[in-house]
Design a protein around this nucleic acid. Sequence first.
DNA 1: GAAACCGGTATCCTCGAGGTAACTAACAGG
DNA 2: CCTGTTAGTTACCTCGAGGATACCGGTTTC
Lengths: 95, 95
Amino acid sequence: MELLSGKWKMQIIGTLLRHGTMRFMELKRTLNGIAPKKLSKDLHELEMNKLITRTVKNTKPITVEYSITEHGRTLDGLIGEIIDWGLTHRQTIIG
Amino acid sequence: MELLSGKWKMQIIGTLLRHGTMRFMELKRTLNGIAPKKLSKDLHELEMNKLITRTVKNTKPITVEYSITEHGRTLDGLIGEIIDWGLTHRQTIIG
DNA sequence: GAAACCGGTATCCTCGAGGTAACTAACAGG
DNA sequence: CCTGTTAGTTACCTCGAGGATACCGGTTTC
């Protein structure tokens, strides 16, 4: 739970699962509103947990690519179930 | 995610799933270290989300019983899967 | 030379989670 | 009376998450 806690980590995982490999700025723009400091910090934490990889490309303006690892992909089903439960829960509370 | 976030809510759910109906002090003693203020607050939040029920018994010193609702029980499997993933994850990181 | 894009880092701030401790009202037993 | 148990409430404090803003070195474009 702890390593998915916080406001952004699940969204980062989800975004990378949907989009595949992404650059730093690309993530920042997709995750609307995240501060670069937070994005940087969360990416490092996710990398330390082997959920994503960080690859520096020596292109003209240096770019950095992030993508989900095999291990990170095992979270996919779990996240889906959590979302499903959440949707059902809303119906239970409202209805 | 939000309604299971925090240090204690999952532990409260888990304890009630294992023990069935429990009184306030019983929960406080089982969840070693929780402040009564926090227990009270979290119980109210869980009750508002219809995950647990609160029943006041008019015994000699008034007692209050808490137990999981049917809706709360639907979390059982999900929590189990989260724990399983967490255990596998530890192996992945350590090994 | 100026501006803009890249991937960040540095600094400052706010706000809420959660801990500690003391207190309360009602009742029971000694 | 006095103490203990019940289920909390109140007041105070700390600490870290996360937001806002500015900045940096490198490189390309104008």
